[in-house]
């Protein structure tokens, strides 16, 4: 299956294959996993080097997981100043699609491309395991097409995934339907016990108010291959592709 999208960058309404760019920062370590996952949808996928200033015409830009710049100072704090971020931010401001996963989400938050911040897990420990996610937003591209009554099993792997926003920002997120996912249990209940990192209101992912920038701590790209026994992540990644067609 080859998916097509309109090329918004030139505003020419001809069909062209959708192109995905995965940014490689020094210390990124989920870049290849993201490439593999998107390539499994028969998309054209390229790696974008952090020192470059060219998005190579990508329709969707992905900031992958890892420890960019060692996450020294603060997660994502250095990566947001990488040379390529100038173009990434411009892409987002043009309305281009941008997704940050795990460390990518932390970079988006540092760059203030999505609201909120990511704090140290309340357990003070790094945690890697499967958790469950319930889609929330009915208007954001990433979640609108998902089954909102289903708990999706997706891995997490982070030490700083505790989402926080002040009351005002939280109210805006909720009022504006910008919460993408909440942590839940296998039955879909967003309980405290199902919250793996102490995130505010079990929030696992959010988008910006324009709904073209998505950030999430869990790793859908790690649950996108039948050989690993879990393909729930495919449903999430697929939204980015199929919804653009509509």
């Amino acid at each position: 299956m080859t998916l097509y999208t309109y090329d918004f960058s030139t505003y020419d309404y001809y069909l062209c294959p959708m192109k995905v760019g995965v940014v490689v920062f020094p210390g990124s370590n989920c870049d290849q996993d993201a490439v593999d996952a998107f390539e499994s949808f028969d998309l054209s996928v390229v790696k974008l080097w952090h020192k470059d200033h060219d998005l190579q015409g990508c329709d969707l830009v992905v900031l992958p997981g890892g420890f960019s710049y060692g996450d020294y100072l603060r997660t994502g704090a250095v990566a947001r100043f990488s040379p390529i971020m100038t173009e990434v931010i411009a892409h987002a401001n043009r309305g281009g699609y941008l997704m940050g996963i795990c460390n990518g989400f932390q970079i988006l938050a540092e760059a203030q491309l999505v609201p909120g911040v990511l704090l140290r897990n309340t357990s003070q420990q790094y945690v890697c395991k499967n958790i469950y996610l319930k889609p929330q937003s009915t208007s954001a591209l990433l979640t609108a097409g998902l089954d909102h009554d289903r708990a999706y099993k997706i891995p997490i792997a982070h030490g700083d995934g505790c989402y926080f926003a002040n009351n005002e920002a939280l109210a805006r997120l909720n009022d504006n339907d910008q919460v993408l996912f909440r942590y839940c249990d296998e039955a879909g209940n967003s309980t405290d016990a199902a919250n793996p990192n102490g995130s505010l209101d079990n929030i696992a992912g959010v988008c910006n108010d324009r709904r073209n920038v998505f950030g999430m701590m869990p790793h859908p790209e790690r649950a996108a291959d039948a050989a690993l026994g879990n393909t729930d992540g495919r449903y999430i990644l697929e939204q980015l592709l199929t919804a653009v067609l509509a």
Binding site: N29, C30, Q32, D33, D36, A37, G65, Q125, Y126, V127, C128, K129, N130, P155, A157, H219, E221, R222, A224, D225, A227, L228, G229, N230
Partner: peptide
């Protein structure tokens, strides 16, 4: 040993076939 192994990233590389089996 989950108290220990959950502190390790066991899934990066999308190659670990033992996560769900």
């Amino acid at each position: 040993r989950r108290w220990v192994y959950e502190q390790y990233d066991s899934m990066v590389g999308t190659a670990n076939r033992s996560t769900n089996a």
